[in-house]
Amino acid sequence: MNNETQIVDLALENLQKTAGITGIWKPGALKELDGQLELKLNNKTIKLNTEIKRELRGHNLPQIEAMAARFNPLIVVAQYIFPKIKEELREKGIAYLETNGNIFLKQKENFIWLDLQKAALPYVEKTNRAYTKTGAKILFYFLLNEDLLNLPYREIAKLTGVALGNINYVITGLREQNFLLKLDQYRYKFQNKRELLNKWVTAYEKRLKPTLEIGTFRFVKGDAFID
């Protein structure tokens, strides 16, 4: 389920089934966000600025907090939100709605918290070599300097410090997901770059970052760092 409209439509359908709350989705109501949600509750209309995510993970929270501060009242609509993330959203007073109908909304005159439905499992994509540990490293260089996309593979491998064969896997993976626009027989440029950046952040957090920690160290003498 990739389409934002599909996510919000299913969320509203299940919200009506589970809580009897109806809603209207207005896409593009705000330029910086995905749209606006109008919920009908006790003969009142609650208007909520809306950001839609397929999944909501830890690295998304700072962005969501900034949006909530700027576009209050904000609700996040997602196919799946990890339980720990839902807890953090509730602590910060940020509203959310999942596609299974689970909802949290806390305002001065309105309070809704429904968490009875079994969560829809997060979508698991077919393995793409662009988001492996090595792929995330190569993609990092591409995102920093898009011109690297059009260098010979051997030169890219030398600059990124990875084996030559990995370059083709990453380029092919990006092409399969329509992140590369072919300019001519030899040259590419990025498209849908924001979505690609989000995928890289997830790949970095899950696969590359854990391998970068060298270890935890301490001084033999506790006050040695002062000298």
Rank of each mutant, 00 (worst) to 15 (best):
K199G: 01
K106E: 15
Y169I: 06
Y96C: 10
A224R: 04
T99M: 12
Q185S: 15
K209L: 13
D147W: 10
G161Y: 00
E146Y: 04
K209D: 09
A136V: 00
T202V: 09
K118I: 09
I112L: 13
I103H: 03
I138H: 02
T216Y: 01
L159A: 15
E176T: 06
Y204F: 14
N150T: 02
A163M: 11
L116C: 09
Q117N: 14
L116T: 13
G165P: 04
V220M: 02
Q117H: 06
I112S: 04
D227R: 13
A163I: 01
E125Q: 14
N192M: 01
L181T: 04
T202L: 01
I112W: 03
D223K: 09
G222M: 08
E155C: 08
F111I: 03
N166V: 01
A163D: 11
L144Y: 11
I112D: 12
K182Y: 01
N100C: 13
L116A: 15
T160N: 07
V162Y: 01
L197S: 03
K206A: 07
E146V: 01
E205K: 09
Q185T: 10
A157L: 02
D115F: 10
V162T: 15
D223Y: 03
T134L: 12
I167K: 05
E195S: 12
L139M: 13
K206W: 05
L208N: 07
I226G: 00
K199M: 13
K137H: 14
T202N: 10
K106V: 05
L181H: 01
N145Q: 10
Y169D: 12
E155S: 12
Y188I: 11
